[in-house]
Amino acid sequence: MGERAKTGKINVGRFFEDYRLGDVIRHAVPRTLAGAERALYHMLYPARHALYSSDEFARASGLKASPLDDMIVFHTVFGKSVPDVSLNAVANLGYGEGRFLAPVWPGDTLRSESEVIGLKQNSNGKTGVVYVRTRGLNQHGTTVLEFVRWVMVRKQHLDAPAPDTTVPDLASAIDASDLVVPQGLTFDAYDFELAGEGHRLGDYSVGEKIDHVDGVTVEEAEHMLATRLWQNTAKVHFDTSARPDGNRLIYGGHVISMARALSFNGLANAQMVVGLNAGAHANPCLSGDTIRAWSEVLDTAETTTPGVGAIRLRLVATKGGAPFALRKEDGKYRSDVLLDLDYWALMPT
């Protein structure tokens, strides 16, 4: 099993040559989540989805109470993996095969572990791409979230031999039949007025695009609060000397949560994120950028639970760019595109 590089008693993180295919890394430190995380999350982002805002709304939907926001779970599990996976990263490149497998409740304790499933040294010989499958587990050992991500990591010793190239074959999307609907969830008594919009799954058509209209300017202070809240220790988010331009890079998850919150305007009933099909941080986000968002409906599907449908969405965050503009003529992302995220959410049919 690969070990983090050490200087005396100090861990300085893993470099590309420290990873071995098949390594399983148990990440420190477990974290007990509480209602305070929800309050802080809703302070940082304009999050308003009713199922995560109201115990009474959640109980009317068949749950024992309001679970913690899906992105709180993602950030917590992701943050635990950073010291072992992306402390020396140049960039977090993408996501795939993500599934939310069980609700997380205030009082639950989460820990994370990652398996190295791919390695590829870049042609410059200075960096390489590490692919990991990360799992978040609760205090009962139940996996609540799993996802694959790939990260570009620096080499410490440029003469270290390149590993055999292994790039995992990942599904382009989670099949709707593999999505997990929380036990007991029902939308039979769903209150559309309290939820904020009247649109059901059948009101959306594949190919439809929605401009979420609003924008939020990212400030340095809120970003630093967010990365500390999620215990994300990646140097590029904290240390101005970690990037040549002297700027602290806004944590990509901050952009995800901001865009997801903005999507409420037009997708208020896309209540629970249950699948992460793919995702890319197309361009860096810096303090002072104004995040806007638009969505495209990619698919709709029934689930095994009557009345609960699934909607597959492309969520695009931009820094002020025109809605619905994604790529240039050469196929590369436009410079104003920050995030391109493909996900499944649950919605009343």
Rank of each mutant, 00 (worst) to 15 (best):
residue 280 A to T: 15
residue 263 S to M: 03
residue 252 G to M: 05
residue 93 L to S: 12
residue 166 T to A: 14
residue 175 D to E: 12
residue 217 T to F: 10
residue 51 L to R: 00
residue 314 R to A: 07
residue 349 T to G: 03
residue 100 F to P: 11
residue 234 A to K: 05
residue 209 K to E: 15
residue 252 G to I: 00
residue 50 A to N: 10
residue 157 H to D: 15
residue 247 N to I: 03
residue 281 H to Q: 09
residue 125 G to C: 10
residue 116 V to G: 06
residue 153 V to Q: 10
residue 156 Q to Y: 13
residue 95 Y to W: 14
residue 116 V to T: 00
residue 336 D to L: 07
residue 45 Y to V: 13
residue 343 Y to P: 01
residue 254 H to R: 06
residue 7 T to L: 13
residue 257 S to M: 11
residue 84 D to T: 02
residue 46 P to K: 08
residue 166 T to M: 11
residue 26 R to V: 15
residue 70 D to V: 07
residue 196 G to S: 11
residue 4 R to Y: 06
residue 224 M to V: 14
residue 2 G to M: 10
residue 87 L to Y: 09
residue 343 Y to N: 14
residue 305 T to S: 04
residue 274 V to S: 14
residue 68 L to G: 01
residue 67 P to D: 13
residue 185 L to A: 06
residue 218 V to L: 14
residue 28 A to L: 04
residue 221 A to P: 06
residue 28 A to K: 09
residue 73 V to W: 01
residue 46 P to T: 01
residue 273 V to Y: 11
residue 254 H to F: 15
residue 258 M to N: 09
residue 344 W to D: 06
residue 22 G to E: 04
residue 334 R to A: 12
residue 191 D to T: 02
residue 197 E to P: 04
residue 28 A to N: 05
residue 229 L to A: 15
residue 126 K to I: 10
residue 43 M to G: 15
residue 345 A to Q: 04
residue 180 V to S: 07
residue 165 T to Y: 00
residue 319 K to G: 01
residue 204 Y to L: 08
residue 120 K to I: 10
residue 129 V to C: 04
residue 52 Y to T: 07
residue 289 D to C: 07
residue 160 A to K: 09
residue 80 K to N: 15
residue 19 Y to I: 08
residue 228 R to H: 12
residue 22 G to N: 14
residue 29 V to Y: 09
residue 67 P to Y: 12
residue 165 T to I: 06
residue 291 I to G: 05
residue 296 E to W: 05
residue 256 I to F: 02
residue 167 V to W: 02
residue 75 H to R: 11
residue 179 L to K: 03
residue 43 M to Q: 12
residue 296 E to R: 09
residue 241 S to R: 05
residue 182 P to M: 05
residue 94 G to C: 11
residue 189 A to F: 02
